[in-house]
Amino acid sequence: MHSLFRLPVARRRKHTSVVLAGLALLLLTAVLPRAEAQQKLLRISAIPDQKPETLNRLYPLLANELSRSLGVQVKYVPVTDYTAAVSAFRRGDLDLVWFGALTGVQARLQKPGAKVIAQRDIDVSFQSFFIANTASGIKPLRNQKGLTALKGKRFTFGSESSTSGRLMPQFYLAEAGVRLGHFAGGAPGFSNSHDATIALVQSGAYQAGVVNEEVWQSRLSSGKTDPKKVIVIWRTPGYANYHWLAQPNLDQRFGKGFTARIESTFVKMRASNPRQAQILDLFGAKRFIPAPQRQYDAIEKVGREIGKIR
């Protein structure tokens, strides 16, 4: 039995080396032309913060539109994790990314020279809404100081690095003297999405939470949220949020003025054009506008205070 067992092993080694050699060749030929083609391929991505189920629809449309306007191949790369998207941008695996304010700053700090391209009209002054379960007894707050009513309550943020679902709310909480350790259980929850935050506060798992205004309004008007069970208790002041961020080297790779052409493609989108209307609608925007980089200085400062930016 032993010899029976060993013979095929010996034979297999020869076979494997032949197969492996063939393989190596095959892989080489498969890889080389692709590396060249990559030069002219614009890879775009986005961190889904709302309506993620429409991304499948949204990004092929956008990729087509960009491709038509810029004259290069555009590929949408799906990424669902904030950390993964920032890392991929630092690595240069993504050329143009739709970031939240905080993740955009994180990405810019890790990739100096990256350019802020454009934002939506609503991103200039974005708001977060603190919400509460009606059974929790928390009443709408008169002012920011009222946030102390959340001490000792079960409270959830959205994603760890969401600007509207975590960063700015935590900043306003801290200003009112509420630290993360003050919540019931000694820590807040992280629901990972605005929809989950609303569902968890409505169910009562968490007595209060915080969501971005856009998702709240949309869920309220679609009837997904029950206004008898969950109410808005406080609205934050406005802050700058989502924006498109581009790699610093796009002009070198795609030709002079390429970055500026991306910006003008976005800024020139109009609802009168049916294709562009679809894109604007899916982004929840009336139009895109230029985004001055300095409006994120405040975000960076808050990020450092809270420890999300090191």
Binding site: K51, E53, P78, A84, A85, S193, D195, A196, A199
Partner: peptide, 22 residues
């Protein structure tokens, strides 16, 4: 589910928006 591609990514997207049918 944590963002590295494949079916898990689709599951996460549907879960985040509570699209149970999807």
């Amino acid at each position: 589910v944590f963002g590295l591609g494949g079916l898990g990514t689709e599951l996460r997207l549907s879960l985040q928006s509570l699209q149970f049918h999807e």
